[in-house]
Amino acid sequence: MTTADAETGRPRTTRVDCRPSGSRYLVFAPDDDSAWYRDLLVSPQATLEIDGVPHAARAVPLEGGEPGFALHLLEVDAARGRAIADQLLVHHGELRKTLAAARAELDGAPAARRTELRGELLGHCVTFCNDLRMHHLREDGAFTAIEKAHPGLAPALKRLRQEHESVSRALCDLDRLLQGKGEIDRAALRDEFERVVKGLEEHFAYEEANLLPALRGEDQVAPSG
């Protein structure tokens, strides 16, 4: 099960024992100090991997004061589909703002501050990477429910899952460049940064073009290339 760290927001993955209960899964914490238990008290969204398949889940505290949760797996109906579409755009907007802040840092740093550029950009990169990892982990879980409700989206969802992996690799390349020792090569940094941005914008655009119409109940078109 993956939760968002209650303090940092970073993804936290924990192996837990779940008990099926109807359409839910019950998960019990050894005590109320368990890290994932505290995470879910702050943010009840979780991604539950069952037999290798990720599922988006909403955690509801168990009654009676026992430390644990009932995990309700996401099901996509018309109303839920519209809500997912709206939230998808919100998340993409937030991620684009973080990228814009990093670009402004890269473009606007005067010569006197270039020795500080790596630290500034690294801060933006760490924030962005954490946010994007959490976003993609939750999307992977939601895709399972979306594909069940909209089987025709299977090719688009397969491509999006693959892009999640390629985007992660590109961010790792950028992070290695920022973490490296010695004088930073501004041109190389800019090229790597723009490669990441280009890949993300293409990913966001494809996702919005192919998922939003179906989630909003509009006429669906074949996945674009």
Rank of each mutant, 00 (worst) to 15 (best):
T3N: 13
T8W: 01
T8C: 10
G9Q: 03
R10C: 01
R15H: 06
C18N: 03
C18W: 08
R19K: 04
G22E: 02
R38Y: 10
D39S: 12
S43N: 15
P44H: 09
Q45R: 11
E49D: 02
I50G: 03
G52H: 07
G52T: 05
A57I: 05
A59F: 05
P67H: 04
A70E: 14
L71V: 06
L74P: 01
L74W: 00
A79Q: 03
A79Y: 01
R82L: 11
A83S: 11
A83N: 02
A83F: 03
I84V: 00
I84Q: 00
V90T: 09
V90R: 12
L95D: 08
T98G: 05
A100E: 14
R103C: 02
R113I: 02
R114C: 09
T115Y: 09
E120W: 12
H124D: 12
T127L: 13
C129D: 13
A145E: 02
E147W: 03
K148R: 14
L153T: 06
A154Q: 10
A154Y: 01
P155R: 03
K158P: 03
R159N: 06
L160M: 12
S166F: 11
S168V: 05
R169Y: 09
A170P: 03
D173W: 05
D175N: 04
L177V: 11
L178N: 04
G180T: 11
K181L: 12
E183P: 09
D185A: 13
R186V: 13
A188R: 10
R190W: 00
E192H: 02
F193D: 02
E194S: 02
R195T: 14
K198P: 08
E201M: 03
H203C: 02
E208R: 06
L211V: 07
E218P: 07
A222G: 05
A222K: 14
P223M: 06
